[in-house]
């Protein structure tokens, strides 16, 4: 029997981190027929090291609900699955970006997909988020789009995935400007208005769940936080109208991105409405 496991970071402090992943897994389970869909976490239960024993024997499609490839997807998850932390180590490359390995419990095959955040359809998810936060299906003309990433000097792929999605959207000529900003590297979030020339901007952070970064750090850097810690939508910062969207990972469409990754690897799961 096939199974799909969404693997997330989880948190000891923030309930939203795993709630977001559970919500996507439940959305997928509703459309999965005989495919068993479940979630696992690095910092919560079920632990990544334990998920194998909760799914039936057979092909198991693992979809990391992370934004970019890096430490977690290439070291922590493979190691916790019992396959060692060398990358690609015992994984065998198959078509596209899928790798597979014998399940460490001997019960079938792990099909390990790219992280959700790297899939090309994330560009559509970002645009969809811009539409829903502004309530305008045609948002774009005269409006800038700022895609925000964490960024880190330690992993250039953290920023490059954001730049790639921004470039995809830019080529569509829909928004007046499409820019990328980061928390931990230049260009910084706090400098938003230095990088746009129009009066209205939609800000979409490419984060999986709402937590410290998306509910405190970024709104404060944008200068839109009100006294009670919330922010108006839209807000005014530096004379510009700012539509701040919150973490894109909570967008229901993410379940379809995860399903697409699993489907491409061979899982029999239909489209997620």
């Amino acid at each position: 029997m096939d199974s799909i496991v969404l693997l997330g970071h989880g948190s000891h402090l923030n309930p939203n981190t795993s709630a977001t992943v559970h919500a996507h897994a439940d959305r997928m389970a509703d459309q999965a027929g005989d495919v068993h869909v479940t979630a696992g976490f690095w910092k919560e239960e079920p632990a990544v090291a334990d998920v194998g024993r909760t799914v039936p024997p057979g092909d198991c499609y693992i979809v990391p609900v992370f934004i970019s490839e890096g430490y977690f997807t290439e070291q922590v998850i493979p190691r916790e699955l019992g396959l060692g932390s060398a990358w690609p180590g015992s994984w065998t490359a198959v078509d596209g970006d899928i790798v597979c390995a014998d399940r460490s419990d001997g019960a079938g095959t792990w099909w390990y997909c790219r992280p959700v955040g790297t899939h090309e359809s994330m560009a559509d998810v970002i645009v969809s988020r811009a539409e829903s936060v502004t309530g305008r299906e045609d948002v774009g003309s005269g409006t800038a789009l700022a895609v925000i990433g964490h960024g880190t000097e330690r992993n250039p792929r953290s920023a490059s995935v954001i730049q790639r999605h921004a470039e995809t959207i830019r080529r569509r000529d829909r928004f007046a400007e499409v820019i990328t900003l980061f928390l931990d590297e230049s260009p910084y979030v706090a400098d938003l208005t230095d990088h746009i020339t129009v009066d209205e901007v939609v800000v979409v952070p490419l984060f999986i769940a709402n937590g410290y970064h998306t509910t405190e750090d970024i709104p404060a850097s944008l200068g839109i936080t009100a006294d009670d810690g919330t922010w108006p939508v839209p807000a005014i910062a530096d004379g510009r109208q700012v539509w701040y969207a919150g973490a894109v990972g909570t967008e229901p469409l993410i379940a379809e991105v995860a399903a697409t990754l699993a489907r491409t690897a061979g899982a029999a799961i239909g489209p997620i409405p």
Binding site: E45, P46, A47, D50, V51, R53, T54
Partner: peptide, 14 residues
């Protein structure tokens, strides 16, 4: 039960 106590049944059985 598995949602309240993840993996508890599998480990109990093992």
């Amino acid at each position: 039960i598995d949602r309240f106590y993840p993996v508890s049944i599998a480990n109990w059985y093992a």
